[in-house]
């Protein structure tokens, strides 16, 4: 019994010594407990935490006037631990944020590079498009110039054609004029021939009545009778038909131009041509004799054209 009582007294004494009724100390302890239980500060300021813990625990063994200073210093260690933890926490946050920023900056650089490549590709494409457009414009301009040249050529050609047509028309007009003139001349010649044929007169010669056809009834240097002469042979036929019982001798004559043989042959052929015409007009063949005299019996001088013209003739003689 005595033992138990003594033990109880000793325990109560010890409790009285250790019990702290200082509220500030309790507050400090609670504050420390709250601090170390915060998850975000758990990895940091371990040394300072230990120091603060030791200081607070030491307070439980202190008393008297030194206690306020000890509490102050214990609070200082706690505050220091908190600030160190906060500082290290912030430093860690800064490192992590900086790492994130570096990552973002790297991604940004990649994105910028990608965009720059896209811009470059687009710029290259635009340059290509512009070049193609310029080439197309150049071709269009070239085509337009070619078309303009073609139009000009066509215009020039048209003008040349028009000028050619005008020239042709003028030439045709000239040809027509000439043709008309030729026609007029032919008509005049025919008319002259007709008048000459109509104006033929017979004259009495020793061989009989003779009518002389000038060389105008023949083509030049030929035995072909002109169509106009054939058509206007009425005067000759009237002359012959007036004497149906007489024989007819036809004599061909030439001028002295050319060889004698040629002239003889030409005169014979001309005489034959007249005979043939008479036969065609109903005169009996056996009444007619055709003779080529050549240049042997001129009636005028062969020294001039007028004389030569008179010498080129065919005499139709109605024999006695």
């Amino acid at each position: 019994m005595i033992k138990r009582t003594l033990t109880l007294i000793l325990l109560l004494f010890a409790h009285g010594l250790l019990a702290k009724d200082n509220l500030e100390l309790e507050s400090l302890r609670i504050e420390f407990d709250n601090f170390i239980s915060q998850q975000k500060y758990r990895p940091y300021a371990k040394e300072e935490k230990t120091q603060a813990k030791s200081a607070i625990e030491a307070l439980y063994n202190q008393r008297g006037e030194v206690k306020n200073h000890a509490v102050y210093m214990a609070r200082h260690y706690l505050t220091k631990a908190k600030m160190m933890a906060e500082s290290e926490y912030l430093e860690n946050e800064l490192r992590e944020t900086d790492a994130q920023l570096q990552t973002i900056n790297m991604q940004t650089l990649k994105a910028e590079a990608k965009l720059a490549r896209m811009e470059a590709d687009r710029a290259q494409l635009l340059i290509k498009l512009h070049a193609e457009e310029a080439e197309r414009a150049r071709r269009e301009k070239q085509n337009a110039l070619a078309l303009a040249d073609q139009k000009t050529s066509e215009a020039e050609l048209s003008q040349a054609e028009m000028q050619a047509a005008q020239a042709y028309a003028k030439a045709q007009e000239k040809v027509a004029t000439l043709a008309k003139q030729e026609a007029d001349l032919a008509f005049a010649e025919i008319e002259a021939l007709r008048m000459q044929l109509e104006s033929l007169v017979a004259k009495e010669t020793s061989a009989g009545l003779m009518m002389t056809l000038g060389d105008f009834v023949f083509d030049s240097a030929s035995a072909n009778l002109k169509q106009a002469a054939i058509d206007n042979f009425d005067r000759v036929m009237q002359f012959i038909s007036g004497y149906p019982d007489r024989k007819i001798r036809i004599e061909g004559h030439t001028d002295s131009s050319g060889s004698e043989a040629f002239n003889l042959d030409l005169s014979q052929r001309r005489a034959d041509a007249v005979k043939q015409l008479l036969v065609q007009n109903g005169i009996a063949d056996d009444r007619i004799e055709s003779v080529g005299k050549g240049e042997a019996h001129p009636v005028a001088s062969n020294a001039n054209e007028a004389g030569k013209a008179k010498n080129r003739r065919v005499d139709i003689i109605l024999l006695k």
Partner: peptide, 22 residues
């Protein structure tokens, strides 16, 4: 205490700086 206060003042300044930086 003054030296402790100086230490705390320096830490506070550092924490403020770190906060601002963050």
């Amino acid at each position: 205490q003054i030296r402790a206060d100086i230490e705390i003042a320096r830490l506070r300044a550092e924490v403020n700086r770190l906060n601002q930086s963050l």
